[in-house]
Nucleic acid binder design. Structure first.
Length: 668
RNA sequence: GCCCAUGUGGCUCAGUGGUAGAGCACACCCUUGGUAAGGGUGAGGUCGAGAGUUCGAUUCUCUCCAUGGGCACCA
């Protein structure tokens, strides 16, 4: 603090307490610790005005007392408030802009179709939506019309005015307008007063924050429509949702739209088709075929996990595909999961296709008498699972009806739990590092509404997981009510190259299933005890993982995973025998090499190999044949010419064997 | 499951109330060409399935199936 300020502070102090005739002053602190004084409680905007007219013009909201919530610029500030003004330059400003843009969209819709009723329109990541109660669905042409209308309204640059109404008045006004959803919201709020934001003639019930004038929204884009249930409940009426976004500048909007384009290019459904990895047929909805190429990725991942299983003390098992439904009655699946199980009746007997491995593994545990010395008992299973997903839920490889998890169950004693969780996290970290997936977050998902077992059991299970992450010093977030029906989970959320989160790995603590199956081990005390069951997966399902990984890498797989690792290209048919020998040599070393001997120009072959994202392209011409060498082109376009043939193969083999991340492929 | 949209050769997509077209891929021929598409010729589709309207449907209507965008669901 400067000398002058310190003096001011003292002076004001004296004024406040020694001059009863003056109104006590209100002091608002700015981020640089300086402050502004008022003899009334100023609004955010008034503070901004006192600093400068330019700042006032750019003001969109504020954050107060170090909080992250953005408050409305019309908010009166109490003495001592620490104020950080949000202007159009700050990322928080988007929230304000989008909030107002949502109102603008609702206004546009109601000006075009007065019969459409409004509900709510919140800001979401990257944009906002507004849910309308409309007698007709919006067409793409309607969306264009809405966008046009919004741009027209923007030009009018109407000021946004806040009013505070009594609950009674608000109910009366909105009832008269037949805005019944709004009336319901006001009643549910149960507040004596509610705030209303007006632009021109149009107004909406809203908590804010909002811009000063609509013209502060610089760029909007109406994106797409969707059906959505009122209050997210499928028993409620379905509304018409319109998604849109808004930005501080046309450039920012352009940039965002480009990012969406990029994400579209990386869509695993497109990539898996273009790279020839997966095939889908309407006769098997949600059940992908893996082609000969896709199967290589699938099997390589499994082989990798199998190697890790040896290191981490897991034993692989194979369990039945179809069980008598009594198994699922016993496990609790019949009560909690029936809708998703493929079931069939043969004669008088009910059968079910297994939706998960755990009940079968409980049977296998019970097959032999276990001593405390046998624990932890870790069994892994790549068994095929089938789940009868609701039709609308299917999505590429990430949501399918049949899949295979890198699944394992650990049966252990209570005192072994911590070490098991720790070992799992080490295992997971090793795998994710190997795959270049270092960015992941941990969520602790707690008891869901639909669950089995007593609250005491749940208390214990949740506490065990929480204690473990705390002791391991891992940062985590609680995900209330998102646990499995048999136990809480630690969910691993992988964040991909485009910053999108995906749930892959999981570690679940289950005290319920061991109880249902009356699982026991004989303790040191020669008495029976119940083991704890841990359900865990690192990749999640192979299908889902491959989908996510394709998007993360944009299809540029590390060499060890690439279906074709090397393509050999001759320049003329004179080099044919050399190429043939080279390809055989590579194959002998276990390298997946393809010889492109087509009568085509080199540029053409390169282009195809490039589009197929093959890590190594070898070109062979007169030079290479005479030097017994190879020239290599990498996916990033770099060339390494004239390497000794054997040296190249040696290096390549070690890259594959060590499962190196191919950084030379370019930025993933 | 719900709302909306879409479905045309292997792929990407035009198009029409009078039984269809392009590019790529494919086959054959010419071309032997050093780092992202050489040229020519040809074959290939009862326009997702079923029903209806119509003299006539790939086109209009309905139902179903699948896919896409969401919602809900995701043990």
């Amino acid at each position: 603090m400067t000398h002058k300020k310190r003096f001011n502070l003292l002076y004001v102090y004296l004024l406040r307490f020694d001059s009863p005739f003056l109104m006590s002053s209100v002091r608002i602190y700015l981020p640089d610790n300086s402050y502004k004084e008022f003899d009334f409680e100023p609004t955010v905007l008034q503070v901004a005005e006192s600093i400068g007219s330019r700042l006032a013009k750019d003001t969109l909201g504020a954050q107060i007392d170090g909080g992250s919530e953005v408050v409305d610029l019309r908010t009166p500030l109490k003495d001592g408030t620490k104020l950080s003004i949000v202007t159009k330059g700050s990322p928080e400003s988007l929230e304000v802009i989008r909030h107002s843009a949502a109102h603008l969209m609702a206004q546009a819709v109601q000006e075009i179709w007065p019969e459409v009723k409004v509900t709510i329109g919140p800001v979401i990541d990257n944009g906002f939506f507004y849910d309308f109660d409309s007698p007709f669905p919006f067409t793409p042409e309607d969306l264009k019309k809405i966008e046009k209308k919004m741009n027209h309204l923007l030009k009018k640059n109407e000021p946004v005015v806040k009013e505070v109404w009594s609950q009674a008045k608000a109910i009366e006004v909105f009832s008269e307008m037949k805005e019944n959803f709004k009336v319901e919201i006001i009643k549910d709020l149960g507040e004596d007063e509610v705030s209303i934001y007006k632009q021109g003639e149009w107004f909406d019930l809203c908590r804010g924050p909002h811009v000063q004038k609509m013209g502060q929204i610089k760029a909007i884009k109406v994106q797409h429509t969707a059906g959505a249930y009122w209050r997210g409940d499928e028993n409620n009426p379905q509304l018409q949702r319109i998604y849109a976004t808004a930005f501080n500048s046309k450039e920012d909007l352009q940039e965002h739209l480009q990012l969406l384009e990029e994400a579209k290019k990386r869509d695993h459904r497109k990539l898996s088709k273009d790279l020839g990895l997966v095939y889908n047929h309407p006769f098997a909805p949600g059940a992908p075929f893996f082609t000969e190429k896709g199967t290589i990725i699938y099997n390589q991942l499994q082989a990798y996990m199998r190697e890790c299983y040896i290191k981490y003390g897991y034993h692989e098992v194979i369990s039945p595909q179809i069980f008598d439904n009594q198994l699922y009655e016993k496990s609790g699946h019949d009560a909690n999961y029936k809708d998703d199980i493929f079931a069939t009746k043969i004669g008088e007997r009910d059968f079910a296709v297994k939706p998960m491995n755990c009940p079968g593994h409980c049977l296998l545990y019970g097959a032999t008498k276990k001593s405390y010395r046998d624990l932890p008992w870790r069994i892994a299973d790549f068994g095929r699972l089938h789940r009868n997903e609701k039709s609308g839920a299917l999505h590429g490889l990430t949501r399918v009806t049949t899949f295979c998890q890198d699944d394992a169950h650990i049966f252990c004693r209570m005192d072994q739990l911590f070490d098991e969780i720790k070992s799992f996290m080490t295992f997971l970290n090793e795998v994710y590092q190997c795959l270049g997936m270092s960015n992941y977050k941990i969520f602790l998902s707690t008891r869901p509404e639909k669950r089995m077992g007593s609250d005491e059991i749940w208390d214990e299970a949740e506490a065990v997981l929480e204690k473990a992450v705390k002791e391991l010093d891992l940062p985590y977030t609680i995900n209330e009510g998102d646990g499995a029906f048999y136990g809480p989970k630690l969910d691993i959320m992988f964040v991909d190259a485009l910053k999108r989160p995906w749930q892959l790995g999981t570690m679940q603590a289950d005290f319920n299933m061991p109880k249902n199956f009356e699982l026991k081990y004989v303790g040191e005390d020669n008495a029976n005890h119940q083991p704890v069951m841990l359900h865990r997966a690192i990749l999640g399902s192979l299908e889902r993982f491959i989908g996510v990984y394709l998007e993360h890498t944009a299809g540029r797989l590390p060499t060890w995973l690439a279906p074709t690792q090397v393509v050999v290209m001759n320049i003329t048919s004179n080099h044919d025998s050399y190429c043939r020998e080279l390809t055989e040599l590579l194959a002998e070393q276990g390298v997946r090499a393809h010889y492109d001997d087509r009568n085509e120009k080199l540029g053409f072959k390169i282009r195809e190999a490039q589009l197929q994202k093959i890590p190594f392209m070898i070109t062979v011409g007169d030079k290479e044949v005479s030097d017994n060498a190879v020239s290599v082109r990498l996916l990033n376009g770099k060339n390494i010419n004239g390497i000794d043939k054997h040296e190249f193969i040696k290096n390549l083999c070690s890259e594959i064997k060590e499962r190196k991340l191919t950084t030379h492929l370019g930025d993933n």
